[in-house]
Computed example of a mutant assay.
Amino acid sequence: MDDEKPKKFFVALSYLTHPTFLKLLEERECKFGFDQAGVLVVPCQASELQRILSERVWI
Rank of each mutant, 00 (worst) to 15 (best):
Q36G: 01
T17Q: 14
K5H: 11
E26H: 10
I59Q: 12
R51L: 12
L13R: 12
R28V: 01
E4K: 15
G33H: 03
G38T: 00
F9D: 00
K5A: 12
T20G: 02
F34L: 09
V11N: 08
E4D: 14
D2I: 15
T17Y: 12
K23I: 08
K23T: 02
D2Q: 13
T20C: 01
S47Q: 12
E29H: 10
V41K: 14
L22F: 05
R56G: 07
A37I: 05
P6G: 04
V42F: 03
S54E: 09
Q36P: 00
T17K: 13
T20R: 09
A37V: 14
L53M: 11
T17D: 14
P43W: 00
P19A: 02
C44D: 03
C44T: 14
K5V: 14
E29D: 13
V39M: 05
M1P: 10
H18D: 08
C44A: 10
V39T: 06
Q36T: 10
V42E: 03
V57S: 12
L53V: 01
F34A: 10
I52P: 00
L40T: 11
D35K: 08
I59W: 08
G38V: 07
E4P: 03
Y15V: 09
L49G: 00
E26I: 06
C44G: 05
L25W: 08
R28P: 01
L24M: 07
P43S: 07
K23V: 05
P19L: 09
A46H: 09
L25C: 10
T17P: 02
L22W: 04
A12N: 14
P6Q: 04
Y15A: 06
E29I: 14
Q36A: 05
L49V: 07
L16K: 05
C44R: 11
E48Q: 15
P43C: 06
W58Y: 07
D35Y: 06
K8N: 15
D3V: 13
C44S: 04
L40V: 15
L40D: 09
L22M: 12
Q45S: 15
W58E: 09
G33T: 01
F9W: 06
E4Y: 08
P19F: 04
E27W: 06
G38E: 02
I52E: 02
E26M: 12
G38D: 07
K31T: 04
